[in-house]
Design a binder for these strands. Structure first.
Lengths: 209, 209
DNA sequence: GTAAACATACCAACCAGTCGGTATGATATC
DNA sequence: GATATCATACCGACTGGTTGGTATGTTTAC
């Protein structure tokens, strides 16, 4: 009874704004998404927006940080396959998962920071840096698994784990662009399948001959 | 003396506007680039802009079409290596060329239509379609060379020429995103090297063991 | 001379950001 | 335990500047 809930969890407005930004920016881009639009989608007032964020740019930075946390959870923590013991199998399951995600409209599977950084790399060092941090975090986390696979199975041509991780990220980002251009995830999925074949070949040149 | 220069090449304003759009959009994105900014960079008045284009969107469509012509010339017509007889060597020279291009600031090597389509796919069907046409044209042209290589050397797993062409395009588009995020083309180049290794392995699994 | 190729001045809508104010709840004072 | 004080969360009207686009006039080409 005396359970002091202290103050009611009033994270609400701030995180609703970030969620709305994730959705709208992925659909329309950063510059084309206005603060008013984000407020309307989040169902909060403009006053609330500027209470939580000093500027639109600051929201972008906060949304990038939140995106990192969200992605790490969604991709590296929650899914059951992350507990596969064999590191190569785990890596391939990761690729299959990214493949599986390529469904529905682009705002459902594309990358918030990847979209944002394209428009802001030259105009806002804060946004560029926040986006880079988010993408780098993904690559470094993925490189851990790749490193484990290399340790157990070796890899061709002395390919490094971090280099392959960046390549995975590049293929995914490119697949998102193609999916938007084609208005269909079909070529994007094909491209990820090429990536999977490449990884298999890197770890065993003659396996699925 | 009476050398009638006939009419001075007055393609000038229109194509200066398109060139300025190519540069500015690649640097800042489509939405963040204003009509006034494009006019200023092109050194023409706003009246001239709307004399040649009914709207900013129409400039985008025209710039996409111009981009297709420019890319076809720059990549598939002018370079000396396009006359290499062996189709696989020609394909690998193509990849090397794309690798070689990844230098200097991003607005010098990134893709105008790739940048534009990310911001416009959901808001302007005209821009999305024009961008898709440009990217598709590149892929279909590249697929001709890949098809020739397949005919001469075979390829693993029954990979199709057009599918591999889209994968090349995806890796390049992804590499552009990574280069912008990292503020350096290093990881982008590494990714294209992965692509080159993949293509080599597809055409000869055990070649450079 | 006339039609295309520009230039200048202007407009309404929209933009990010400001500001005065309110509602609420925790803490301090007596 | 009632009251004063303070901090946080939020609201929505407002502002100065920017936006894409227009109206109208001038210059150039043939």
């Amino acid at each position: 009874m005396s359970s002091r809930v202290t103050h009611a969890p009033r994270q609400s407005a701030r995180s609703k704004l970030i969620d709305a930004a994730h959705m709208l920016v992925r659909k329309q881009g950063y510059a084309a998404t206005s603060v008013d639009e984000i407020c309307a989608a989040a169902g909060v007032s403009k006053g609330a927006f500027f209470h939580h964020f000093a500027s639109k740019e600051e929201l972008g930075v906060a949304a990038a940080e939140q995106w990192t946390a969200r992605a790490d959870e969604l991709i590296f923590t929650l899914p059951p396959w992350v507990r596969i013991e064999d590191p190569l199998e785990r890596l391939l399951a990761h690729i299959d998962f990214r493949l599986f995600m390529l469904e529905g409209p682009p705002e459902g599977f594309t990358c918030f920071v990847g979209t944002m950084v394209q428009e802001s790399f030259a105009s806002s060092e804060a946004l560029r840096h926040a986006s880079e941090a988010s993408i780098s975090a993904y690559c470094e986390r993925l490189a851990v698994d790749i490193e484990a696979a290399i340790a157990r199975y070796r890899i061709r041509d002395g390919v490094s784990a971090i280099s392959l991780a960046w390549h995975v990220q590049a293929v995914l980002q490119g697949a998102f662009v193609i999916a938007k251009a084609r208005n269909s995830p079909r070529e994007a999925r094909d491209s990820v399948l090429h990536l999977k074949r490449y990884i298999k070949m890197l770890f065993d040149g003659g396996e699925n001959r």
